[in-house]
Amino acid sequence: MAEHFVKVYTRFNRIWHWSQVVSIMLLFFTGARMLGLHQLGPFGLAVTVHTLVALALLLLWAFATFWLFTTGGWRQFIPRLTGMVKVARFYAFGVFKGEEHPYHKTFDRRHNPLQALAYFALKMALFPAIWISGLLYLSYNLWGANDAQAFWLGLVANIHVLAAFAIAAFVVAHVYLLTIGHGFREHVRPMLTGYDRVDLTPEAEAYLAQKGLLKD
């Protein structure tokens, strides 16, 4: 096994990621405007941007899901227990003593076990919660006719807001964790260039070299 610069993030992967960054930030900003956390810009503009960006993001998610399943990329996101304790122990203790991160990326497992679990929770719980509640919120007039006391609307709205804050909490942890290990820049660069340092078996090395996915 040796470390190599490998193209781990395809163009679509990177576009997917940064589009999500931009849209989720816009959604946070406009959502906070509607929730009354700030007064920057008109409420109506916030509604418009929030709605359009959310629909665009949903479309992107539909493409991404298709892409993940057709490329087999979905396997990256299935959590497993192997190494979990080590990684957890690292974040809880080792990191303060300057220990090395115990996890080494491989080509088909670029997330450490804790990371994979977090992404899995995000994709399976928080994202569905936000977009199902969001779509229900948006389409209230199609189903809310008999919701005389607005109970269901209130429920949907509260779930939507709670899920949004949970995603915001994820973003905080996500960005913070970039500062651990090789450093913030080192962590962000692969998502810009597509290339990251990954342990490769000689077979994988040969295969990726043939495919032109190795940089050195």
């Binding site: 509607m34 929730l35 009354g36 956390l37 409420f43 005389a148 006391q149 607005a150 609307l153 209130g154 709205a157 509260n158 779930i159 939507h160 807001v161 709670l162 899920a163 949004a164 804050f165 949970a166 915001a168 909490a169 994820f170 905080v172 942890a173 913070y176």
Partner: peptide, 28 residues
Amino acid sequence: AGIYVPGGGIGIGGKLGLVVFLMALLGV
């Protein structure tokens, strides 16, 4: 009475959410 007005207050979901968010901030 009998209406939910988005923006009329952050509500229980917003309060819980803020707690989660602040805990994440404090945690990091």
